[in-house]
Design a protein around this nucleic acid. Structure first.
Lengths: 192, 192
DNA sequence: GGAATGACAAAAATCAATATCTGTCAATCA
DNA sequence: TGATTGACAGATATTGATTTTTGTCATTCC
């Protein structure tokens, strides 16, 4: 007997088809065909094509956040974790944009249509930063302040280096120097 | 006798047509017709349509920078000028995006195709900030540092609030609070 | 009886035929 | 003689007829 069709299986298929054909040429019929079922069946598990896209986007964005969680938990000073966290985030995105541009293009297109999923992801990233900053304040590395506010501020101040909208500017040869300058400025603000 | 045709007149016409029809539906023929000349004549004064677009973009961006120059020259402490400069820049852009969305759309489309003109504009903005920061360092308001590097850093750290790519995020109700948080962080970094 | 199908209507995407636009240049004009 | 014109070729954009897609639901299947 055939496996029961699950949301997970549909998402895996959707991700596969999106990778292969890109977001513009991916239809629900394609996703269903890759699973050997009719497209009507897919609609039993997902409300709409948009819901499938949202779910795929969420999976992908979670894969970005996951390694950052490890950085937060490392037994190191908050300052080091802050730097590492920002470097991992920016390099992850920039690497993907360079090494797999179509993939990055696809991810960007998905994020444009899944605004709410992206907002939750951004909140999650800011919250991760807040935890590092709270640690840093607790043990005196950073000056007192509201970690939630400071976390958001740090994330936004570094947007140029990780926000996909800026991807077109990532081939600038001065990028690394610019990052260092912004990071140094932000760090001084946290310590001050 | 008719006025001699000048580059200025062509640019004024181009700006006019762009305002009225938007960048997608603006042809060199339209620009020429608005001046009562043939399009061949326009090509005597500009190398290409791209050159016309670049020149219009430059005019518009210069109109953004000009009022900021006044802020720099005001006889006030550097800290106050820095804040004012950032507020004027962000509010100018955000106002335009809200009050004249098609106009903003047009300007955005132009900037996407006039990369070099935009790069020069960004350099100019960073240089303006550097001047304020140099003043602040000179009279002890800010800690010592390289004004050129710090100017670029401040501009990039606040990109979220003035970079047109982020316009879609400017309706966020927390925008003002986010700006205040980033500004406070950056200011502490400059003073520290 | 719950899961899957496929015919269907409305909406969206595709495609090829048609029209417009860009940029050049020999001819015209003043 | 130097500015302007308009015909022209190749590239790009528009249009509307045709196909594909989305989402629904009565019917079929196990």
């Amino acid at each position: 007997m055939a496996e029961a069709l699950t949301r997970e299986a549909i998402l895996a298929s959707a991700e596969d088809v999106l990778r292969r054909y890109g977001p513009a040429k991916t239809s629900v019929v394609d996703i269903a065909r890759a699973l050997g079922v009719s497209h009507g069946t897919v609609y039993r598990h997902f409300e709409s094509k948009a819901a499938i896209r949202d779910a795929v986007t969420e999976r992908w964005l979670d894969r970005v956040s996951a390694p950052l969680e490890d950085v937060i938990r490392a037994p190191r000073p908050a300052i080091d974790r802050l730097h590492e966290w920002l470097v991992v985030l920016t390099e992850t995105k920039q690497q993907m944009a360079v090494t797999d541009p179509e993939m990055f293009e696809t991810l960007l297109a998905l994020t444009m249509t899944s605004r709410e999923v992206v907002a939750a992801h951004v909140d999650h990233l800011a919250e991760q930063l807040s935890r590092i900053i709270a640690d840093g304040i607790a043990d005196g590395e950073f000056a007192p302040g509201d970690p939630a506010v400071l976390g958001r501020a740090v994330l936004q101040a570094t947007a140029r280096f990780h926000h996909p909208l800026h991807a077109a500017e990532w081939d600038d040869p001065g990028l690394a120097a610019d990052f260092d300058a912004v990071y140094a400025l932000v760090l001084r603000g946290l310590i001050a």
